[in-house]
Simulated scan of single mutants.
Amino acid sequence: MSWLTEHVRPKLRSLLQRDVPDNLWTNCESCSQMMLTKELVRKKKVCPHCGHHMRATAHERMKWTFDDGQYTTIDLPAVPADPLHFRDSKRYTDRLKTARSKAGLDDSLLVAHGRIDGREAVVAVMAFEFMAGTMGSALGEAFLTACREAIQRKAPLIIFTASGGARMQEGVVSLMQMPRTTIGVEMLREAGLPYLVVLTNPTTGGVSASFAMLGDIHIAEPNALIAFAGPRVIRDTVREELPEGFQRSEYLKDHGMVDIIASRAELPALLGRLIGMLSPAANGDAKAARAS
């Protein structure tokens, strides 16, 4: 055996067969272009080729929203883990354990406070990575906690929605969160505090039929699906072709359901301006200026 096969070939193989991380590249689910994952994260998970907004985790949204990415999470109350003792192919308690392990969250809503453009705010983010952001009793309790925190701090509440709707494993208990969260929104209104909703892809089901559509201002990410029932279900029910872009952000803005469409790069500055215009302190300063 020659020195070429004994020494040179193994060295060449070791150079050419270096381990490449599985997550080095990411494919855009819209245009199928490949991009470096690090670059995609730097661009807040917005495709640089087509502008498609990919799904983001709850902690990523918090980091992107608050000044310098600094925020303090709020402890949320515990609720009964399995009120109906539900079981399908797996126990509901087992599904919860798996979801908590994967997402690193207790449930599908994360709440924090901090500053946006120098102004204090409470932010709640629905975590689609936790059982598709479904709404159960834990989410309802967390939303009410966010409302109380905002009232205590006399700060606006901003919520980022992303949900597949009510959580089937909690049945009617999940559906009861629709009126409960509506009460939370009414508490904010009585306190004179702004309630801003940022609709992301997807926002559907009982979430879109309750607190997601009760904001003072509705902001949506581009091309987000916002609906109660999905377009396929509606098409199969009415047996008619739906308009192009039906139930997407742009269609809903044209029909008065959404106020503003904003990209992720624009959101922090936009939220800061809206807080400045709508906060009680700003309104008080404006009244004092008019009086003088």
Rank of each mutant, 00 (worst) to 15 (best):
D117L: 03
D117H: 12
D117V: 00
D117N: 14
D117A: 15
D117W: 04
D117R: 13
G118H: 04
R119V: 02
R119M: 10
E120H: 10
E120T: 13
E120N: 12
E120V: 07
E120L: 08
A121N: 03
A121Q: 01
A121K: 01
V122F: 00
V122Q: 04
V122D: 03
V123E: 04
V123D: 05
V123F: 04
A124R: 05
A127Q: 07
A127N: 10
A127W: 05
A127E: 14
A127H: 05
A127C: 08
F128W: 14
E129L: 10
E129D: 14
E129K: 10
F130D: 01
F130N: 04
M131V: 09
M131G: 05
M131E: 15
M131H: 12
A132T: 05
G133S: 03
T134I: 11
T134P: 06
M135F: 11
M135G: 10
M135N: 14
M135I: 15
G136F: 08
G136I: 07
G136T: 08
G136W: 08
S137A: 15
S137C: 12
S137Y: 11
A138T: 04
G140C: 08
G140W: 06
G140E: 11
G140V: 05
G140S: 07
G140Y: 07
E141I: 03
E141G: 05
E141Y: 08
A142G: 15
A142H: 14
F143T: 10
F143D: 12
F143Q: 09
L144Q: 13
L144K: 13
T145Y: 11
C147A: 15
C147R: 10
C147G: 10
R148T: 02
E149R: 13
A150K: 02
A150H: 00
I151H: 05
Q152T: 14
Q152P: 02
Q152E: 14
Q152M: 12
R153S: 02
R153Y: 00
R153P: 02
R153W: 00
K154A: 11
K154Q: 15
K154P: 02
A155W: 00
A155C: 01
A155P: 00
A155M: 01
P156M: 08
P156K: 09
I158G: 06
I158E: 06
I158P: 03
I159K: 05
I159L: 12
I159M: 14
I159S: 09
T161S: 15
T161A: 13
A162H: 08
A162Y: 03
S163T: 12
G164H: 12
G164A: 15
G164P: 03
G164Y: 07
G165D: 03
G165N: 04
G165S: 03
G165R: 01
A166D: 11
M168K: 11
M168D: 13
M168F: 11
Q169R: 04
Q169L: 05
Q169D: 15
E170W: 00
E170H: 01
G171H: 06
G171Y: 04
V172Q: 11
V172H: 13
V172C: 07
V173N: 09
V173Y: 06
S174W: 09
L175F: 11
L175A: 13
L175H: 13
L175Y: 13
M176E: 12
Q177W: 06
Q177D: 14
Q177I: 05
Q177K: 05
Q177Y: 06
M178V: 11
M178D: 07
M178L: 07
M178P: 00
M178G: 01
P179L: 01
P179F: 00
P179V: 02
P179C: 01
R180T: 06
